[in-house]
């Protein structure tokens, strides 16, 4: 499902990832940990082809990094759900419009959209808040809205890059529980975090990234 073959990427300032090899199978829930600046976000960006490796190959859902076109990148991302530390919700749209956005991108019929949005909001516990704008929601709610937007298209892979970074411990714990619920539906999940206490003891594969190198913990 997700595969790195000798993938390296260097930022302009020199740091990055060096000769990375890893594989995440379909249906797995994997945590990626490492201190700030260890390259977790770089690794995530390589997966959704925001950056292309300088050398080596990154594969996801049958899409491969060498020579990938913008059109293929858009197609690859349509099968990936993404959650970010800063939520990336659109401030000028209410919750309904934010969550419905991927469905419009995928060309869903407008008659199917409301039910799907309701379903996604129910799952993340935001039912009844469809008309709220992001600034009217707490950090935890915004992150759950971001999660609803990521899962509404029923992605094969869900990438969560420091999703608890801006949340209090209770909200963080709830979010991880929510991700575990989503994982039960068969979604492959890769969640990056620097908070080891939050993810330890959950019986999931943990990959540790340190100085651009990856190891299984």
């Amino acid at each position: 499902m997700i595969e790195f073959q000798n993938a390296s990427y260097a930022h302009n300032k020199g740091y990055g990832l060096n000769n990375l090899n890893m594989s995440i199978d379909e249906g797995e829930f994997t945590f990626l940990i490492g201190p700030t600046g260890s390259g977790k976000t770089t690794l995530m960006r390589l997966i959704y082809f925001d950056i292309i490796p300088d050398s080596g190959i990154v594969k996801i859902n049958g899409f491969s990094s060498p020579g990938i076109t913008q059109k293929k990148i858009a197609m690859a991302r349509q099968s990936i759900g993404m959650v970010f530390q800063d939520y990336k919700l659109l401030k000028d749209r209410n919750l309904f419009d934010n969550v419905a956005l991927p469905l419009h991108v995928l060309g869903f019929k407008s008659s199917e959209i409301p039910d799907r949005v309701d379903e996604a909001l129910d799952l993340v516990g935001l039912e009844g808040k469809e008309g709220h704008y992001p600034y009217e929601l707490s950090g935890g709610e915004q992150q759950r809205a971001s999660l609803a937007r990521a899962i509404i298209k029923e992605p094969d892979v869900l990438l969560a890059d420091e999703p608890t970074g801006n949340l209090d411990p209770v909200s963080s714990f709830e979010l991880v529980r929510l991700l575990e619920t989503i994982h039960e539906t068969g979604t492959t999940i890769l969640m990056a975090s620097h908070n080891y206490n939050l993810i330890k003891g959950r019986g999931r594969q943990i990959l540790e990234l340190k100085n651009g190198q990856l190891r299984i913990r």
Partner: peptide, 16 residues
């Protein structure tokens, strides 16, 4: 530009 970035991350085509 945040809208453009978000739409790209969701997988929207350039035309979209």
């Amino acid at each position: 530009r945040d809208l453009i970035e978000t739409l790209q991350l969701i997988g929207a085509s350039r035309t979209f």
